[in-house]
Amino acid sequence: MRTNGKPAAMYVSPAFDYIYVRNSEGIQFPKGYDDAKVVISGAYKESAFHSKINELVLDDIPLKDVDVVLLAKASTQMVEGRPIVGVLGRAALFRFTVHIRVGEKKKRVSLDPDLTYTTFPSFWISSLKENPEDQKKFTHYDDFLSVGQGALVKNLFMGGSPIENEKIFFHDEVEIGSLGLPFFAAHSGNVSVQDRRGDVQ
């Protein structure tokens, strides 16, 4: 990822509501007009300010004039030579997609921690070596319920790393895959763009 033209890295967590950033060596964010307190980990309070990133590039997609919350304490963390400048919360997760590999085929999926399950379109089943389980589940969407067929997917990869034994529900009514809450509960880390194709790890 890049922020205002500079390479950076950020954690990804649906537990955060917004995009939170910290100044780091070489990357500074403007301090806005709102001076407030943010509660971290349920106890620690830190000063915070409204701020803005002129251009935030995620998955090779530029996002313009992104509102963020600037925390007062600077960051000293690094990963692969990039400063870790903050965390992408729900406000960012809904705005971009990532590549995963299902079997031998590469697919794009959205990030949606509000979904009860990870869901894929039914026609993606043909990409799998395993047969889906013969059962039905319900997944909540914004305004309807969709019947899904469950499968324990073993040959799923993100950024070259295997995601083993991921429970997926395949639905006739959806056209794009979405990584739901169980995925975020089981997997943690930071997102770093590897190349222009949008592969991530």
Results as ranks from 00 to 15, higher is better:
residue 113 P to V: 07
residue 162 P to G: 02
residue 148 G to H: 01
residue 105 K to T: 14
residue 182 P to L: 03
residue 117 Y to E: 15
residue 147 V to K: 04
residue 14 P to Y: 07
residue 192 S to Q: 12
residue 29 F to D: 06
residue 11 Y to M: 09
residue 201 Q to H: 15
residue 82 R to I: 06
residue 95 R to C: 05
residue 173 E to H: 05
residue 51 S to L: 01
residue 63 L to V: 07
residue 63 L to K: 12
residue 114 D to H: 11
residue 72 A to G: 14
residue 58 L to Q: 06
residue 161 S to G: 04
residue 171 H to C: 04
residue 93 L to M: 15
residue 130 E to Q: 09
residue 22 R to H: 05
residue 163 I to P: 03
residue 19 I to H: 02
residue 50 H to E: 11
residue 99 H to D: 12
residue 158 M to C: 05
residue 15 A to C: 13
residue 133 E to V: 03
residue 25 E to C: 05
residue 170 F to T: 08
residue 75 S to K: 12
residue 121 P to G: 00
residue 33 Y to F: 13
residue 65 D to T: 05
residue 173 E to K: 13
residue 66 V to N: 10
residue 104 E to L: 14
residue 199 D to Q: 14
residue 195 D to V: 02
residue 136 K to L: 10
residue 115 L to T: 09
residue 129 K to Y: 11
residue 35 D to Q: 10
residue 140 H to C: 07
residue 139 T to I: 15
residue 151 A to Q: 07
residue 107 K to C: 12
residue 47 S to N: 03
residue 109 V to K: 08
residue 130 E to S: 10
residue 48 A to P: 01
residue 74 A to E: 15
residue 192 S to V: 11
residue 178 S to T: 13
residue 138 F to M: 13
residue 92 A to P: 08
residue 60 D to L: 08
residue 164 E to M: 04
residue 115 L to Y: 05
residue 151 A to W: 01
residue 61 I to E: 10
residue 149 Q to D: 07
residue 90 R to A: 13
residue 27 I to K: 03
residue 108 R to I: 10
residue 4 N to P: 10
residue 32 G to F: 02
residue 184 F to H: 11
residue 173 E to N: 08
residue 31 K to A: 03
residue 152 L to N: 10
residue 102 V to Q: 09
residue 107 K to L: 10
residue 93 L to C: 11
residue 197 R to W: 13
residue 89 G to N: 04
residue 197 R to P: 00
residue 140 H to A: 14
residue 52 K to N: 07
residue 16 F to M: 13
